[in-house]
Design a protein around this nucleic acid. Structure first.
Lengths: 134, 134
DNA sequence: TGCACCTCTGAATAGCTGTTCATATGTTAA
DNA sequence: TTAACATATGAACAGCTATTCAGAGGTGCA
């Protein structure tokens, strides 16, 4: 006998098993806007090429063509990616003549990257046969 | 007088500005496989609905229908999302009769979620208005 | 057994995303 | 000024993704 109950959520009747728990978790859930922002940041890190760009910037600023060389992408693709990252305040640009030097701007993102790197190192220690780079 | 040089990368001649820096960053870059894995994890967190699911699981396990109620998705959508997360070992399932209780399995992902939660809202306080640039 | 229930799955579709190509903008040097 | 240069941008296309719908397991109860 799995006692479940019916609860009103957003005007709809929904079947739930642990009603108070559901209400509690729901109340602690971040607002839709914060959630969308957070998901967007994760989404930006979810593309291998953008991730490479950001990891390359961990040590300091680099110009577009060097970023292209480091990450193995076309300069156009890099520029498009940087535009996205710039729009979300993840990177910032310093213009010097016709060069554009990009740097990591978001301290939060830097923490996420550091955490990710720390864990890939761990994976590497466990699977040394994978190698450090190509 | 922007002295740049030409470097061989993957058999292609590429124009770079700071050649030693490019080589140094390139050598520190994680391997393609690790990078893809990391990006995939971030990608999983990059969808608002999946993010909601995972945040709901921070406090402990929940069944599919309660997850649907908490996150406001259809049970089918939740099941599909959980299947993906399960395939990547981010969540694990405990079956009890016809119920399926899901829990967070990946400690790394839990850290990322905690970090994200800790920072939600702060961004708003620091940057009251977003989207002035570009 | 029959039936309601919870979850899972496959197929299909609509929407998003990242890349490329061509071109524009702005800069430096000759 | 002209030419080479560094980056930025728009359009378009291919590939991916998340949702919905319909239905298929399995499970518990009468």
């Amino acid at each position: 006998m799995n006692s479940y109950s019916e609860v009103q959520i957003d005007g709809c009747t929904v079947r739930v098993v642990d009603a108070p728990r559901v209400e509690s978790v729901r109340s602690r859930m971040p607002g839709q806007e914060d959630l969308a922002d957070t998901a967007e940041v994760f989404g930006l890190l979810g593309d291998p090429n953008r991730l490479r760009l950001l990891l390359a910037l961990l040590d300091g600023e680099l110009c577009v063509c060097d970023l292209a060389a480091v990450t193995g992408q076309s300069e156009s693709a890099v520029s498009h990616a940087l535009r996205l990252l710039r729009a979300h305040r993840v990177v910032a640009v310093r213009r010097a003549g016709r060069m554009a030097y990009y740097r990591l701007e978001d301290a939060h993102v830097r923490m996420l990257l550091d955490l990710a790197i720390a864990h890939t190192g761990h994976t590497q220690a466990i699977h040394p046969e994978r190698g450090g780079n190509d």
